[in-house]
Design a protein around this nucleic acid. Structure first.
Lengths: 195, 195
DNA sequence: TTTTATTGATTGATCAGTCAATCAAAAATA
DNA sequence: TATTTTTGATTGACTGATCAATCAATAAAA
């Protein structure tokens, strides 16, 4: 049913389909056919709109990080004090959809892809920097600037680490436990500076 | 120059070659030809000894984890007190060869692969459990058992997280800084329980 | 002579990417 | 309003490349 103005609809459908396929597949080694089938269109159409598989995958990473960013921005708005903002950031990182098995699988795949794709790495670096600077900005209100950088580094590492370990599915850590571990890290380190 | 008794030699050469190729490639999407060429033999020989590409890759993961394990065992022997043993474990995780870019790339590739390959996941789960239980065993001498589990979980997450972030190459954290962050985590958490 | 090591050549499958053709809506024209 | 032209959407069929896996043949030890 060829109507006009399908482009944005198809692009979104294909990116969403890619996320889903990457998710269950657990890797970026997916075929255009799979993605197209999942989106309910022909592989040729996917090429028509994205030019190449690589471009589609890059766009998928971009959209994924964009969504996460939006969540953070929203969450930060509702929080008032710096300490509340720190908690809000942590909560977003572990909120349900981010912690879903397919999402984690996709994250891992993206990280692995970043070793090869310059553009994927660029996106992930931006994400990593933003997380770090969000943390630092709020930590600075609670401790000396030097300590803020160090604590932020540790907290970011812990968040990423909890992700990767969750992805393994060995130690089934709950969302709440993950949040608690990260909160604990912040609280104790901030306290130790006061004392 | 066909001599007898080449099997173990070739197997080792192929596994080492696989690690190297996976390392610079930054992914498990490598060809048997690449690996074989790196090992200086024909692709057919790689199939002869390993049966399939999957088997060769699985063996590569296994050997990789085995080596890490040996390092830990050695390091634990030289340490005496529980606190020293904890430091020894951390040091091994971040020792030079583990922190080399190609090694980190290989690790990431393995984690991603674990989403698909049951056997790879099994190996990584064993590694994760061993790290956790090594930490717990020594922490128990320094704090209540319940806290030991929690702190070990956090430390393990931090180690894995520092890895993954190092792999991104965004924030070039030094080996020493990574060790310091993890040590700090343990020290402060242990202290906070005493106080 | 039997066994082990080794490879070149080949096969079959998979896949990204291309292209020409089709179909239907929209726009232009009569 | 009716008819024609244009344009965007869409696909089936095809191509060329890549690659895992196989196998028959060779060469050197035992």
């Amino acid at each position: 049913m060829p109507k006009v103005g399908m482009e944005p609809v198809r692009r979104k459908a294909l990116v969403d389909a890619a996320m889903r396929v990457i998710g269950d597949h657990g890797s970026l080694t997916v075929t255009m056919s799979e993605i197209a089938k999942q989106a309910g269109v022909s592989p040729a159409l996917a090429h028509h709109y994205f030019g190449s598989k690589e471009q589609l995958l890059i766009e998928t990473v971009r959209v994924h990080l964009q969504r996460l960013r939006d969540s953070v921005v929203t969450a930060l708005r509702t929080a008032k004090t710096p300490r509340e903002k720190l908690s809000a950031i942590i909560r977003v990182c572990f909120q349900a959809d981010q912690f879903a098995p397919e999402t984690i699988a996709a994250w891992l795949a993206f990280y692995a892809e970043a070793q090869r794709s310059e553009e994927t790495r660029r996106f992930l670096v931006i994400y990593a920097r933003r997380l770090h600077s969000n943390l630092v900005a709020n930590l600075k209100a609670l401790c000396p600037a030097g300590d803020a950088g160090r604590i932020a580094e540790g907290a970011a590492a812990m968040i990423d680490g909890l992700y990767i370990r969750q992805g393994l599915g060995s130690a089934p850590i709950s969302t709440e436990a993950s949040i608690a571990l990260t909160e604990d890290y912040l609280t104790i380190h901030l306290n130790s500076l006061k004392g």
